[in-house]
C-alpha cells in the first residue's frame, strides 16, 4: 500500500469517528450529562459548550456510561486502595 493510500485510510477513519462524535455530542451535553453526573444536571450553557469538544472526542466512553445509567465513579487513588487492602487484611 502506498503512503498516500495509507494516509487516506487513516484520515478517513478519523473523519468517520469524529463525525459520529459530533453527531452524538449535542444530545449528550443536552440530556446525557445530567444523567451520568448529578453535579451537571442544572449546569449552564457555558459548561455544556466547554465539554462538547471532549465529548466529541471521547464519545464511546460517555455513550457506554449513559446507556448503563451509571453515576460518576467513586473516588480512587493509591492511598484509598492501600487503606482498603489493609482493612481487608485486618478483617480476614
Amino acid at each position: 500500500m502506498s503512503i498516500v493510500r495509507a494516509a487516506e485510510v487513516v484520515v478517513l477513519l478519523c473523519t468517520v469517528y469524529i463525525a459520529l462524535g459530533l453527531a452524538f455530542a449535542p444530545f449528550f451535553v443536552w440530556r446525557g450529562v445530567g444523567r451520568i453526573d448529578p453535579a451537571a444536571r442544572s449546569a449552564g450553557f457555558g459548561f455544556r459548550l466547554i465539554i462538547l469538544p471532549g465529548v466529541a472526542a471521547l464519545w464511546p466512553v460517555l455513550l457506554r456510561r449513559w446507556l448503563a445509567g451509571r453515576r460518576p465513579p467513586s473516588e480512587r487513588n493509591a492511598h484509598r486502595d492501600a487503606a482498603a487492602s489493609r482493612a481487608g487484611q485486618a478483617s480476614a
Partner: peptide, 19 residues
C-alpha cells in the same frame, strides 16, 4: 494537546476517574 485541553474541565477528572 487537543485531548488534554478538551478534558481539562473538572467534569472530566470526576467522570474519567483520577487514575
Amino acid at each position: 494537546l487537543f485531548l488534554l485541553a478538551a478534558t481539562s474541565h473538572d467534569f472530566w477528572l470526576a467522570n474519567l476517574t483520577a487514575p
